[in-house]
């Protein structure tokens, strides 16, 4: 009754199988792995800025997980929406970038070439640009430097 797992040592990770209370609206989880998320991170920050800020301000009020469920659902829906749009508009560029990240320890500076094609595609199709907050003014942002010192050894 109290636990869905026997008291003896178990070989599999414990999972609470109790479903979400029925009064909470359902939302599909994002279900995207780390590399595509890292590839989409800056566009996510640009596209879902209002929802993200709203959610984080709400979390600032209270850390209670039940406090910001509504805002959290909006955040997840917005992220799912962006990933769908990216896949509709820039599927090939998106995939080549995140596969490059997957191969290169998820380092941005080793995947500038596919990143630039993705950035230009995202700007053309969706009007989203990658901006890094806080980078020094008057200098080229690091993702646009043509001949950086830190780059892959192989051409």
């Amino acid at each position: 009754m109290t636990s869905s797992q026997s008291g003896s040592l178990s070989t599999h990770a414990y999972q609470d199988s109790t479903p979400m209370p029925a009064d909470v609206p359902k939302v599909a989880e994002i279900g995207v792995t780390s590399a595509p998320l890292k590839s989409a991170a800056f566009f996510l920050g640009a596209y879902c800025k209002e929802f993200n800020d709203d959610f984080m301000l709400c979390k600032n009020e209270s850390r209670d997980p039940g406090h910001c469920l509504k805002e959290g659902r909006r955040v997840t829906r917005c992220a799912t929406d962006l990933i769908t749009k990216m896949r509709e508009n820039c599927l090939q560029q998106f995939e080549s970038h995140w596969e490059c990240l997957e191969r290169n320890n998820q380092e941005y500076h080793l995947c500038r070439k596919p990143e630039r094609t993705l950035n230009s595609c995202m700007f053309e199709k969706l009007g989203l640009t990658k901006t890094i907050p806080g980078s020094p003014a008057g200098k080229l942002p690091i993702h646009e430097v043509q001949n950086p010192i830190y780059k892959g050894i192989q051409k």
């Binding site: 890292k38 991170a41 929802f51 993200n52 910001c68 959290g72 955040v75 997840t76």
Partner: peptide, 8 residues
Amino acid sequence: HLVPLFLA
């Protein structure tokens, strides 16, 4: 940028 998503 990914923090709100994971936190939610």
